[in-house]
Amino acid sequence: MIPVVSDLAPLVCAVLLAVTGAGKLFGRRTAQVAADTVLVRVLGDARRAALALRTIGGVEVALAAALLAAPTAVVPGAATAALGLGFTGYLGYARATAPESSCGCSAKQEGPIGLLSFSRAGLVVLGGAAAATADTSWWSRIADRPAVSTVFLVAATVVVGALTADLDRLWLLPLRRARIRLFGNPLPASAGPAGQVPVAASVELLERSLAWQAASPVVRSALLDSWDDEGWRVLRFAGVYEDMRGAHPVSVLFALDRTATIDTTENPAVRVSLIDDETEELVPADVLAPVPSRTALPLAT
């Protein structure tokens, strides 16, 4: 390998491992993060997952110390590469079995396992392999070739930073925005037949109408069922009305134009009917609350 790279790799790997390891080992939120990882499923419970995460953190810190202290030794570098391979395997397993689980990689940011997680693990493998081949200590290399070393360290910092979930908003979001600008928004512009109004939009229109206001003393449930019939959208709710003989369960049916939304009308015509659940007979509309025409308007003076 290129001497500068291999000689400085122990330093870069050590810093990376020290930061992520200390985060896992001492982080107050490690237990919480562990609870979201696939480790919970593998180890059976969240406490053991947290312990495993902290143990890995300890190993990372120990490796970081070894890399710093004995940069020319083969073992710390090889162990780092092995750790990286282990991470990759773990991520592959987690991705395959629980794709939305968090990786627990940096013990800070939670998030599903994606390309970033794999790139980070890959970097540890490469860094470890490079470190294993170092033949000069990093401090003498920096003393010998300060300019080249600085350039390399800056570059390494940028790469590591770019792969850190915490910093991705600096570059990842602009990149994603640019992709959407270039290739268009991948989300559907409309689902289903054109002009089809979602049921939720009809419910929204209903719940802001006079009809809803009139029926609200009777309606008890949220939307039970809906269907389209001859240009109408029928929305069924459950309700109760009371008369002298007691309380009676009723179906409260609203029928409205199935193409109408709050964008097309402010004051939709809604057909309201109450059907007694026991007798299946239409209940007279006078159980509905008076609509605002019967509410006394304040007089202008």
Partner: peptide, 22 residues
């Protein structure tokens, strides 16, 4: 549903889109 639709459209009270005034 068919029964309810018929009942709903047949005997319904129409609320809104009228000259009730807001």
């Amino acid at each position: 549903r068919r029964f309810l639709t018929t009942a709903a459209l047949g005997g319904a009270t129409i609320v809104g889109a009228s000259a009730l005034g807001g």
